[in-house]
């Protein structure tokens, strides 16, 4: 099974970090990816730029509407993602526990939906 682990945290917590704390968090994330990859669980993953860099695109009646920021204001913001390979939800949860921001934000674990075969 493939699961997407969506990493959320309050950017305000990150903004309040010292340079050293921010550096350490990034190093922990790098180690986490290395560990997951070594165990064969890591398929893909990236960290995201802060939410202020986001642009939302909608197409309505053929017209493209572009606006600033994410669609919904939330308490925690999407900060990155891991695409994981796991046996089942229990294993996916155990992997998500290891993602460093789990300790300061939250990780949403969602199973991947396979698209039907093309017509």
């Amino acid at each position: 099974m493939k699961y997407l682990a969506l990493v959320y945290y309050q950017e305000s917590i990150i903004n309040a970090m010292t340079e050293k704390e921010w550096h350490d968090l990034n190093q922990k994330c790098i180690q986490c990816v290395a560990g997951l990859a070594e165990a064969g669980h890591f398929i893909a993953g990236q960290a995201l730029q802060p939410v202020e860099t986001a642009t939302t695109v909608r197409v309505r009646n053929g017209e493209t509407l572009i606006s600033d920021g994410p669609f919904a204001e939330t308490k925690e913001q999407l900060a990155g993602f891991y695409l994981l390979e796991a046996r089942d939800l229990n294993e996916a949860i155990q992997l998500a526990e290891k993602i460093p921001p789990a300790q300061l934000g939250s990780i949403e674990v969602r199973p991947i939906r396979d698209l039907p075969p093309p017509d």
């Binding site: 046996r87 089942d88 939800l89 229990n90 294993e91 155990q94 969602r110 199973p111």
Partner: peptide
């Protein structure tokens, strides 16, 4: 079914 919640007794840690 869809999230593959396993049919198992959790391991010692959990």
């Amino acid at each position: 079914r869809d999230a593959a919640i396993p049919y198992e007794v959790p391991d010692i840690k959990a």
